[in-house]
Design a protein around this nucleic acid. Structure first.
Length: 543
RNA sequence: GCACCCGUAGCUCAGCUGGAUAGAGCGUUUGCUUGCGGAGCAAAAGGUCGCACGUUCAAAUCGUGUCGGGUGUACCA
């Protein structure tokens, strides 16, 4: 397609002596061509000519093209060219992008809080974040997967307030999570408890900061914290996501606090009602508290500390933070404040957001109220569905179903997690893609033909598949540029459909056309493997 | 109130840096059925792209307004 662009550009220059950057698109089905350009339409005004006339003039200048109304130039691609391209890929499957070559990218996502359980939202953000990381790696970057979580803060104090009263002998993550729900309730309803929790919060900061190990509260705190991090690591291992770096909030709180206080003196932040704030309204944003009146750094200040800590640790070329949509305005305020004294860091930072995972019927989930879907529950639901419907216990298939169900959606909007629908094994689903790839692999294993065929002419199924396969590197480039794994997911489904049509209509093993067809199957399989790998999905041997 | 996001088929979504007849999956109806593994393929039905005005040769796509839904908005994370 890039070559066509050059040819067209050259022809336009020779005809009209102007530099024009034409666009090439895949022709619609009713046009008997492979690729088209609307260049004549866009040039009409400048050239004071009828677009169709321009299209005709251009078409006369380039072989294998024709004009169509209202003003398109259409290209036909020869089978010889397509065949050469496919043979090259079949010989050595190589797609690559150098967009982030030799760059270090810190990719922060998932961000669960210790002392709370992982819910379905964490599962979603982990899967998406890992796929985006893989996209960067494909483009040549060294990616640091970072995980930021609140091991100190009000939510910990609320939990500890209840946990301290119960002081269970055996501590489980579920017990801790229940304490959080109870703690939140008393914090809201009971003024006395609220005051105590506020005190507890400060105490826990001290325990953490000074690494105090003695005392009932300290012992309980450290035990719970350790339990939480083990639980996180176990879960991430189950879904095949590995973090390179955990940033507990406590490790960045002090730096954040001192940065904010330093810039308070420089006039970036200001005092208000005993708290340290950033007046975002000056920038069309809202005002937020960075240090509360107790002198404790809020999440805002910790995020400031995190930015500087990441920089000190990695000197990143790019820093990407992935969170839920609700953090959008919040993050703008934090970044705007940092921009005042470290613009170079903010410039390298992107904030991507995703929507909520909702249950069918618009039921909202809240960890504070405790009515939510735990991440492990979701894994179990998918496993059960697979076992009941297909008698399969393959974890690769299970993960494919789950990850693909999340990744096929463009990031940003809320997604509905319907247990029955999202996990369906037919249609646009992970298992469909796997099944299709496994069948392709089987053909490759069964084939052994090396009969040379000259001047092979593709039939319609072969031709469509070839054209689709050749789109892959362009799709990847787009996906990398937009940091959008969904582009890859949607493309893979489209190729798989094209392959199914080919499979249905063209037998490979034993056919006269075997040598040519096997190339398509090979490139198809490699494409699927490559694309699924970016989504964090593995292809099983059997299904 | 103000700011940001979202309204496309019955449902779930692509398409959105303007281009030719708006595409998939699920569901519904029909055909293919011991295949190189049918978790598939082929076909039918289903749309005023929330609404209005505007910009343009051309608008689902851009602009303004409006209606509907969501989120955020000071000491939570």
């Amino acid at each position: 397609m890039e070559e066509l662009r050059e040819i067209l550009k050259k022809a336009i220059f020779e005809l009209y002596e102007i530099d024009f950057e034409p666009e090439i698109v895949v022709s619609p089905e009713n046009i008997e061509a492979d690729y088209s350009s609307n260049a004549p339409l866009r040039l009409a005004k400048e050239l004071h000519d009828n677009p169709f006339n321009i299209a005709e003039k251009i078409s006369e200048k380039i072989d294998n093209t024709f004009a169509s109304k209202p003003g398109f130039v259409n290209f036909r691609i020869s089978d010889g060219y397509l065949s050469d391209e496919i043979s090259e890929l079949a010989d050595k499957f190589e797609v690559g992008s150098d967009k982030f070559e030799n760059q270090t990218i810190v990719c922060e996502f998932s961000d669960p809080n210790p002392f709370k359980v992982l819910h379905v939202g964490h599962l979603y953000t982990s899967v998406v974040g890992d796929a985006i990381s893989r996209l960067f790696e494909y483009a040549g970057a060294k990616v640091v997967r970072a995980n930021f979580g609140g091991d100190v803060g009000l939510h910990v104090a609320k939990t500890m307030y209840i946990l301290k009263q119960k002081n269970p002998v055996e501590l489980t993550i579920e017990d801790i999570a229940r304490c959080y729900v109870e703690g939140t309730a008393v914090y809201e309803d009971d003024e006395g408890a609220r005051a105590e929790i506020t005190e507890l919060n400060k105490e826990i900061y001290k325990i953490n900061a000074n690494n105090i190990r003695e005392g009932e509260l300290a012992e309980l705190y450290w035990k719970g914290r350790e339990l939480s991090y083990e639980y996180f690591k176990d879960f991430y291992a189950r879904i095949g996501v590995k973090f390179d770096k955990y940033y507990p909030e406590s490790t960045v709180a002090a730096l954040g606090l001192s940065k904010v206080l330093e810039e308070l003196d420089n006039g970036v932040y200001e005092k208000s009602d005993g708290a340290v704030i950033f007046d975002g309204e000056k920038y069309g944003l809202h005002t937020r508290v960075f240090v509360n009146r107790e002198g404790v750094p809020t999440y805002e200040a910790k995020d400031v500390g995190l930015i500087f800590t990441k920089w000190a640790d990695y000197h990143f070329d790019k820093s990407v933070v992935i969170t839920g949509n609700e953090q959008l305005e919040y993050m703008k305020v934090v970044l705007k404040s940092v921009e005042q004294y470290a613009p170079e860091l903010v410039e390298k930072t992107s904030h991507l957001t995703h929507g909520l995972v909702k249950l069918p019927g618009n039921v909202k989930m809240s960890s504070r109220k405790g009515n939510f879907l735990k991440a492990v529950d979701v894994l179990e639901m998918v496993s059960d569905e697979l076992k009941n419907e297909y008698d399969s216990e393959d974890t690769k298939v299970m993960m494919a179903a789950l990850k693909y169900a999340f990744l096929k959606y463009k990031m940003g909007g809320d997604i509905i997690f319907d247990v029955k629908e999202s996990v369906k094994m037919t249609g646009n689903s992970g298992p469909y893609l796997l099944y299709s790839a496994v069948r392709a692999k089987k053909i490759l294993n069964n084939s052994s033909s090396d009969k040379k065929i000259d001047n092979y002419i593709y039939n319609i199924y072969e031709r469509n598949l070839v054209k689709k396969l050749l789109e892959y590197s362009g799709v990847l480039e787009e996906a990398v540029g937009e940091m959008a794994p969904s582009k890859v997911a949607n493309y893979l489904y489209e190729v798989a459909q094209e392959f199914s049509r080919f499979y249905e209509n063209c037998s490979v093993v034993g056919a006269d056309e075997e040598t040519e067809r096997i190339k398509l199957v090979k490139v198809y399989f490699e494409t699927m493997q490559h694309g699924l790998n970016i989504l964090g999905i593995e292809i099983p041997e059997e299904m």
